[in-house]
Simulated scan of single mutants.
Amino acid sequence: METPTPPVLLLPAPRTSTAELIARAAAWRGYDVTDRVTRAEGRRVHWYGGPRAAARLAGPLGLGLLEPADDWLTHVPHTLLRRHIRLTTLGKARALRERVFVKPPSAKIDLLPAAVHEDGSGLPGRLDPSTPVLVSEVVEFVAEYRLFVLDGTAVTGSRYAVHGHLDPAPLDAESRAFARTVLDATAASLPSAVCLDIGRLSDGSWAVVEANMAWFAHCYAAEPDRVLDTVLRAAGPITAVTDRDRPHLNRPTAPPEQIPERRTADAGRPTPTLS
């Protein structure tokens, strides 16, 4: 009797600390964990890594990569967002003459760091004016939390920053409660496997920070096994993607060679506290 071929978890080298953690969890479950694409060909493959390599490999390996819509934040109820955000173009953002927070809508556009600008005149001039950007009024997050969400439930997560400084810690009761409130209101508009960031503002209220792809998110102090569960759903065979998730399939905004790799927060740089 032939031994079934194990599924593959493909991780690019060099591995981040999150990749190492989920690699151990996957190996324990019997996955073939590798950075060699040739070992993944013709097999059931899951991915954890950056958007440029993902865009290059998704087609040949039959990967279905899930991520939120670029304009997802703009549809979050104001009571959960606590600030005004709009999706626009870089060209229009350059014409702004007020203090704003500007960020790309996803990790696929990395030549534009998320930052506060006194006005739009300081935005990079080397990018195409049609590049999509999210423009937000400026608020201050005093603590930020990351949640790994599977089927509308936060299966694990952790605090990752306090006053803009990396400070991982377990989730607390308040963060769990707000996460439940957010997911009750928004889970239907998100992929079934996704990364959701929330935070506490300087006035003590809570707000959504952003949502992003689980297959390139640092886990901080979250439980690696539950992170792996989310990653396996978020970046697996396209043939396993349900009708519910098909609208959330990743579609690169540029050819793979033009998509810069983004470093994860493993580098010690948490998400900016202003947005």
Rank of each mutant, 00 (worst) to 15 (best):
P124E: 03
A23E: 04
A207Y: 01
V116Q: 00
K92D: 09
Y31P: 10
A240P: 11
R251Q: 14
D32G: 15
D119R: 03
D119E: 05
L65C: 08
A177P: 12
L87S: 03
V227N: 02
E210Q: 05
G64D: 05
T18N: 06
P14S: 06
E210G: 02
Y31T: 12
F141K: 01
H165S: 11
D266F: 06
P191F: 06
P7C: 01
K103N: 02
L134V: 09
G64C: 08
G91V: 13
D128F: 14
L10H: 02
L190S: 08
R82M: 09
A254G: 05
P60K: 07
A240K: 11
D229C: 10
P14V: 14
P168I: 07
E261V: 09
P105W: 00
R44S: 12
T38I: 11
V155C: 15
T79F: 08
A54G: 15
W215N: 02
A55F: 07
R82D: 06
L96K: 00
G30Y: 09
A55H: 03
P224Y: 01
H84K: 11
R97W: 12
L190F: 08
P256Y: 02
D245H: 05
S130N: 14
L166P: 00
A54M: 12
E20G: 12
A93H: 05
D128Y: 13
H218V: 08
T181E: 09
R246Q: 10
A234G: 07
P14D: 14
P51C: 13
R251E: 10
K103E: 00
L21K: 03
G64F: 07
L147G: 00
S106E: 15
A93S: 07
T181C: 13
R29Y: 08
T271G: 01
H165N: 01
R29G: 14
L123F: 14
A211K: 01
F141P: 04
E257Y: 10
T34E: 06
D197L: 01
P237G: 05
I198P: 00
L111R: 12
P260N: 13
K92C: 03
E118R: 10
D119M: 04
A114D: 00
G49I: 08
R39H: 09
E140T: 13
G204Q: 05
R99P: 08
G125D: 06
T89A: 04
Y160H: 02
T38F: 09
D245Q: 02
L10C: 12
T5C: 13
A217N: 07
P270M: 06
P255V: 14
D32Q: 14
D229M: 09
R159C: 06
D70V: 04
A265F: 04
T153V: 11
S136T: 09
T271H: 03
P105F: 04
H78A: 08
V149G: 00
E144M: 03
Y160F: 07
E67H: 05
K108L: 14
D110N: 11
A69V: 06
V8P: 01
L63N: 01
D167W: 11
E210M: 02
R24F: 14
D110C: 13
V208S: 14
E137F: 04
V8I: 12
A222W: 05
K103W: 00
R94P: 14
G30T: 10
P6D: 09
P129A: 10
H248Q: 04
R99W: 05
I238S: 12
H75C: 07
V135W: 01
A107E: 10
G59S: 14
H117G: 12
V241H: 06
